[in-house]
């Protein structure tokens, strides 16, 4: 399988990465090189094989449903590019 320019643009948009027109062809080549490389997996017989869910056997543990952390709004917004009164601020989302 290989991708065309329109697919590269669609992937970039899904990944929320702006791609300039002059980058598309280059990216297409690189992505296709990787896809060609992983193509060999199609020769493996995976009939009846379970997909891996967890690499080591582990049981999910549960804990009591209680607050273990909090009251640290100052710390949470400390690295924000823009914040106001303990809120993250972003460009207008709803018109």
């Amino acid at each position: 399988m290989s991708v065309d320019a329109a697919t590269v643009r669609r992937i970039a948009h899904l990944a929320r990465i702006a791609v300039a027109d002059d980058e598309v062809e280059h990216l297409r080549g690189e992505i296709n090189a990787i896809l060609a490389f992983v193509e060999q997996l199609s020769e493996v017989n995976v009939d009846g094989v379970e997909p891996m869910i967890s690499v080591t056997p582990m049981t999910m543990v549960q804990r009591a449903d209680e607050v273990t952390d909090g009251g640290i709004a100052d710390q949470i917004v400390r690295n924000a590019p823009a914040a106001q009164d303990h809120y993250f601020t972003v460009p207008k989302v709803i018109e």
């Binding site: 997996l41 493996v44 995976v46 997909p51 891996m52």
Partner: peptide, 8 residues
Amino acid sequence: RAQKVRTL
């Protein structure tokens, strides 16, 4: 498919 190969 990759996760199945990983199992193998």
